[in-house]
Design a protein around this nucleic acid. Sequence first.
RNA 1: UGGGCCGUCGCCAAGCUGGUUAAGGCACUGGGUUUUGAUCCCAGCAUACCUAGGUUCGAAUCCUAGCGGCCCAGCCA
Length: 579
Amino acid sequence: MTDSAADALLPVNFIRARIDEDCAAHTYGQKVATRFPPEPNGFLHFGHAKSIFLNFGIAADYRAACPESYCNLRLDDTNPTKEETEFVDAIRADVAWLGFDTAGREFYASDYFERLYHCAERLIEAGFAYVDSQDADALRATRGTLTEPGTDSPFRSRSVAENLDLFRRMRAGEFPDGAHILRAKIDMSAGNINLRDPAIYRIRHAHHHRTGDAWCLYPMYDYAHCVSDALEGISHSLCTLEFADHRPLYDWFLDRLADLGEFTRPLPQQIEFSRLNLTYVVLSKRKLIQLVSEGYVDGWDDPRLPTLQGARRRGYTPAGFKLFTDRIGISKSDSLIDFSVLEDCMREVLNETAERRVAVLDPIKLVLTNFPADQREPCFAPNHPHHSELGKREIALTRELWIERDDFMAEPVKGFFRLTPGKEVRLRYGFIIQCTGFTADANGRVIEVQATYDPDTKSGTPGSESRKVKGNIHWLSVADAVPAEIRLYDRLFAVPAPGARREGDAPERDRDFLADINPESRHIQTGMVEPALAQCAPETRCQFERLGYFVADARDHQTGKPVFNRTVSLRDSWQKTGG
RNA sequence: UGGGCCGUCGCCAAGCUGGUUAAGGCACUGGGUUUUGAUCCCAGCAUACCUAGGUUCGAAUCCUAGCGGCCCAGCCA
C-alpha cells in the first residue's frame, strides 16, 4: 500500500484503475498505449489540456511498469473541408508547450487512408457494408427518431459484387459529392441510433491538407478512429462521454476486422470520461471561432480566450495546468469547475517560481518633504521572499516617489491601514513615513501626497524591526521609474454560464452567449515599473509586489517599451471583505 | 415501453467484489508567523453518501421502485 512516496502522488481515477489491471496482467504486452487525437480545425483550449495531461501523463507514468508505453499525437484529419495545416502547427506547439515531446510519435489519420480503404473492401466482401444511393434527405427520413426505429434502405440488399464495383468507382471519382455513401449493415431498428447503418465513407471532391487531390472519398470518424487506434497499437482509447454511444460501433468494426484477419486481439478499448466544464468561459469550438472571427477578441491568442495560446500569452504556466488537471481529477460525472480553481492553481505555481518586482499601476506622486532633493538612498529588495538564493537588487529611494493611488485615502474608511493624513506607514524596503498632507486638483482628485520620513527606521538596519507599523506600501522613484503599458484582464464573460437560460427567460431557449460578454474584460493603462522590467525578455513572468502576477507580452513587449499583461491578481482578503 | 451515462460536504473526488472513525484536494472558518491585507504554519469543517422501500448481524457499497441531471436523430469530430 505504501510502496513509495511517489506512488502516493500519482493520480487515482477509474481509468488508471482499469489500466492497472491490464498493465499488471500484461494484457497488451509490455505497453500501455494512448493517443491524443485532436481534429486540426481549430486551436486547442483548456479542455484539451485535460485530455493531454491524461493521455500523455498515463503513458509516461506507466513506463515504469510497462516500459514500451507511449502516447501518440494523432491529427484526426478525415474531413478535408475543415482542416488546415495552420492548426496542425499550433496544436503541435501547444502540446510541446505543455511539456510533451511528440517527436517520432506524430501521426495522421490521413496516413491510413489506403489501409482504411482496404479494410472497407473487406467489410463489403464479408457482407458487412453496402453502398447506399439515397440522398441525405432520404437518409434522414429513414433513420427514424429517438423513439421510433428506422427503415431499411432500398439499396441495403445490393450484391457484394455490385457494392464492390460501386465503391471502387466512388474512389475512382466517377460520382459527384453525395451520390453514394458506404454504410455499415447493422440494424435500422437499434435503440442506439449510431447503429442504424451508419455512414462509413462519403464522397468529397475536395483538396486535403496532406493528401492533396489523391482522394475524393473520405472515411467517417466512427470508422477511421477505431481503425487508426488499432493500426497504432493503442491499448486504451480515452475520449469524452458523448462518445459512449459510439463504443458499440467502435467494437463492431474492430471485431469484424479482427475476424477477417486484419487485426489481432486484444483490440484497443474505448473508455470515456467527462469533459471539462468551466465557469465564465466557453469551450465550444464553434463559439471560440465566432469570438475570433467576429472580432470580440484580438485573435486566437487573445489573453482572455480559454485557448492554450491565449493562456500562454496571459502568463498561465504549463505547471499550473498540470496542477489544475490533477486537482480536478477524472471521472464520469458532469462537473462544473469554478474558474477560480484554475486561477488559484496559477497563483500557486507562480508564487513559487515568479521573482518579485515593483510596479505602480495607477501612480500618484509622494513627496518626502524632509528628504534632500539630491539624495539617493540605496534600498535592497529580495527577488523572492522564500528563496534568498535568488538574490536581491538595489532600488534607490529619492525625494519624489510614485505610489499607488489606492494606497492613499484622504478620508479613510474603516479598516484601511495604508497611507492617510497623520498616519504612519512603511515604504517597503525603505523607511517609515508619516503623511503630513496632500493636494488635490479643482475636481477634488488627489494629485500629490506629502510625508516626512524617519531616517532611523530604514529596513534592514538595527532597530528598524522594533518599530511596528501595519501598513506597508510599495513605491518607485520618479527619477528611475519607466512608463509601461499595463493590460489588466478580467473574465471575458460576466456570468458563470455564458449563453445559458436564466431565471425569467423564456423556457427551452438559450440566450445568445455574446450578450453575456463582459464589457470590462480588458483595461489598458500606463503604469510605472522599475528599470529592470524595461529590459526583460518577452514572456518573462514576475510578481508585481502586492498586485499580482504579470508577464511581458509575447508580441508587443520590447526593450525600453515594456508591455505587461496581468496573469492573475494576488488574493486580496481586504477587497474580499468589502473593505 | 428508444438508447447510453451520471447523482458522496459550497466545488472537485476516493471508496462501490458489503464490516473504514466516509480518504484527499480546493473553498471556507478560527489561530500563529510575516516589511506583500500575499505566502507559509496549525486547527476545524458530511452520524452522512438523490429519495423510498427491501436483503443482511451489518449497506454509500447488493436488490426493487422512483426522482433529478447530461448526451444521441451530421454524407462533423
